[in-house]
Amino acid sequence: MNAVAAAISRREGRFPSAAPVQAHGNARGVPVTLRGLAKSFGPKQVLKAVDLHIPAGQFVAVVGKSGCGKSTLLRLIVGLEQATAGRVLIDAEEGRPSGARIMFQEPRLLPWARVRGNVEVGLDRSLATSERRLKAQDALAEVGLDDRGDEWPAVLSGGQKQRVALARALAGHPRLLALDEPLGALDALTRIGMQRLIESVWQQQGFTAVLVTHDVAEAIALADRILVIDEGRIAADLPIDAPRPRHRGDPALAALEGRILDRLFNDQGSGI
């Protein structure tokens, strides 16, 4: 485990918080730093001393077995849980990040508000009504639902609801977007469409993205970097340099997917 810690500190050295943002990013993303982050629920230790630095604008995917603490990590980052020990620094600051948004597997739309009203939830309360309307409409257009603003959420399909949730998250132009298996409940085709949508809005807006997924292929298709969580720690931290857009079935990516799956299912296999 010392080797892992050493690797982490080396990585931190590689990505100091003042590092220039990456080629595709712009000034909007925030860097995220975790220092010795630990979380226990009662006697159960879910995360043990996680150290991590995510440069501004990076797209990070987090994979790991069910129950390994991926959601907990994400909730700690956006301030929905209190750490038992350690610190979360967003843009080098501590405390509940105001520019952070999180999307869940469930769309969590208000059933009693129209689609546009739901998107307006994501906007600054101090805006004038007409401006809110306009911005909500823009966000809906961004996810391809500009003509559904007056509908009730109940009439939308699962994929459409999740797109409304994405529009709501994007409406306030977040600097950090956390995604907790947002596509887990969607069918395969809808999922691929949503992956492309998420990639393109991320490229346009340049926020920092942290995606938790159980689908390794999805992580490889979208992320700059994949973190494998195991036993409450970051067991592997893999950069993915393949150019975008990435093509499913690319042999190099398929080989990487195989290695990550091996790593997930075989704890001794530390070939990566």
Binding site: S98, F104, E106, R108, V121
Partner: peptide, 23 residues
């Protein structure tokens, strides 16, 4: 989960009551 969503999006107690809890 809706209440948590409201809090994430910065709703205060009053807004949370009118927009989430009461409906």
């Amino acid at each position: 989960q809706l209440v948590e969503m409201g809090r994430i999006y910065g709703m205060g107690s009053w807004e949370l009551f009118w927009r989430v809890i009461l409906p």
